[in-house]
């Protein structure tokens, strides 16, 4: 066994000691007190005075829009100052006039869910990755790249996830119709038959 492997095994043993689970961060997370939407909305307005259209849409949902260049800054503030430790999902939408990327965050101590949207142009949509903030973003962003062709800058592993690596189309774009069959693959099927 190489030295590196021994180090990894030792690291796993030390890193994963069960008593470590009683750390202060965890105890902090164990507080499940409900905070109301209005309180969180006030806190958000204090942190982000530039964002205007922040509103409560449904019970426990707060929605707002973020400009693309301020995405990472916003995410870091939400994670480090406001206890939104996890990303629940990232979703893409083709609006025909452009693309939207929507982030949904959950918190273990506040109950309202934050939903914020970043709008991107129609041609060559590109946005900075948030993998550095939440590791959960990795596969969500790969999926959006696969389905919509939105480029995520500085993503560690931006590959197709559902479709084959040689696919040259983006199926969830509105320009792709349900019965469209890619020409390249049709020829392949014909050869097999």
């Amino acid at each position: 066994m190489s030295e590196r492997t021994e180090a990894i095994e030792q690291g796993q043993r030390d890193h994963h000691k069960p008593e470590l689970f009683e750390t202060d961060t965890l105890k902090h997370n164990l507080q499940t007190g409900m905070t109301g939407e209005q309180e969180v909305l006030q806190m958000l307005k204090g942190k982000f005075p530039d964002i205007e259209d922040m509103k409560i849409t449904l019970p426990r949902r707060i929605e707002f829009k973020v400009p693309a260049e301020k995405l990472i800054e916003t995410c870091n503030i939400l994670k480090n100052d406001m206890d939104y430790k996890g990303v629940s999902f990232i979703s893409g939408v083709d609006r025909r006039t452009g693309f939207d990327v929507t982030y949904m965050l959950f918190s273990l101590s506040h109950s309202p869910v934050l939903v914020f949207t970043v709008s991107l142009p129609k041609d060559e949509p590109s946005i900075h990755t948030v993998c550095g903030v939440w590791r959960a973003a990795n596969w969500y962003e790969r999926e959006i790249y696969d389905m919509f062709g939105i480029n995520f800058e500085n993503h560690p592993d931006l590959r197709r996830i559902m479709l084959r690596d040689d696919a040259d189309f983006f199926p969830l774009r509105k320009t792709y119709k349900l019965n469209d069959k890619p020409k390249k693959w049709q020829e392949e099927c014909r050869r097999v038959q």
């Binding site: 069960p18 470590l20 689970f21 590791r135």
Partner: peptide, 15 residues
């Protein structure tokens, strides 16, 4: 027992 341990902070960060 003690196989495949997932730490809570990792679990939250990984979604």
């Amino acid at each position: 027992m003690d196989v495949g341990i997932l730490r809570p902070d990792d679990a939250i960060d990984l979604g």
